[in-house]
């Protein structure tokens, strides 16, 4: 992927499988968001291809892609005073034809999505008056309303409190259990360790390593990519907790 002659991402070969939560991790600017946009068909790769079930996204109509791939952007700002329900109803857009109006099937999908993202009580509020965390859950609800088989999320918990973060991760896990393909860009490696099945480690625009989480969050891989030292604290529940330390100042390149 190249924009204006600068390579944003190169040498990425990644497959997002159904029934699995795949996490994309890496430092700021390593290309996580770019990869998600390529997978969502929002950007076209300069070379190579992004495909859905073997079909090249470049040749597919936007509506068709939108029915199968949902995308939750990091920036959820809404500048106009739509109600929360109206925003979630927009998730049905790819299913409703130009000369049709949304039917009971669409209404049911919207209600279910509001419920699952725990925003039913916000349905009649204006979206521009919500807090950042509430808005993030509304946008998550909109992506659920599409009923897409693949959901791509860019830092979906960056504005959420602890309780709602946990709920969101639980929801992603449940979606994967239902057979959906979930891909999520995350900074919080502990969340990756706890909730993701697979992980891809990005570094400087390319995919370093990809595989089951245990094989990716190894100290010898994480430490050079993030430039930190990792300390593991074993807890009784089984999952390790990672604690990060700044490296002592280095000399030379």
């Amino acid at each position: 992927m190249r924009i204006d002659g600068r390579w944003l991402v190169r040498d990425v070969s990644l497959s997002i499988e159904p029934a699995r939560v795949t996490a994309l991790v890496g430092p700021n600017g390593s290309g996580k968001s770019t990869v998600l946009r390529l997978l969502a068909g929002l950007w076209r790769p300069t070379n190579g291809r992004a495909a859905l079930d073997g079909a090249d996204l470049a040749g597919m109509a936007r509506r068709l892609i939108a029915r199968q791939v949902a995308f939750v952007p990091q920036d959820t700002h809404v500048g106009f005073a739509f109600s929360v329900r109206q925003v979630v109803e927009m998730g049905r857009h790819p299913h409703v034809g130009r000369f049709e109006t949304p039917g009971p099937r669409d209404a049911a999908a919207v209600e279910a999505a509001l419920e699952r993202a725990d925003v039913t009580h916000l349905a009649d509020r204006l979206v521009n008056e919500l807090s950042g965390g509430e808005r993030q859950r509304v946008v998550l609800a909109r992506s659920l309303a599409t009923e897409a088989e693949a959901i791509l999320l860019d830092e979906p918990t960056s504005n959420l409190d602890i309780d709602h973060s946990l709920e969101t991760f639980k929801l992603l896990k449940d979606l994967a259990k239902e057979g959906k393909a979930v891909a999520v860009a995350l900074h919080d490696l502990n969340a990756v360790e706890r909730w993701a099945d697979h992980a891809g480690l990005m570094h400087a625009g390319s995919l370093r390593e990809c595989g089951p989480v245990r094989d990716i969050l190894r100290d010898d891989l994480v430490e050079p990519v993030f430039g930190v030292e990792v300390e593991r604290i074993h807890s009784a529940t089984g999952a390790d907790t990672l604690v990060f330390h700044r490296r002592p100042a280095q000399c030379g390149p």
Partner: peptide
């Protein structure tokens, strides 16, 4: 009038519109 829903979506930003199936 044929584009009312597209116009709604455009208010949420071009990337969001595209991801929800708007050309």
């Amino acid at each position: 009038l044929w584009h009312t829903r597209e116009l709604d979506l455009m208010l949420l930003g071009e990337e969001t519109s595209a991801s929800l199936g708007v050309d």
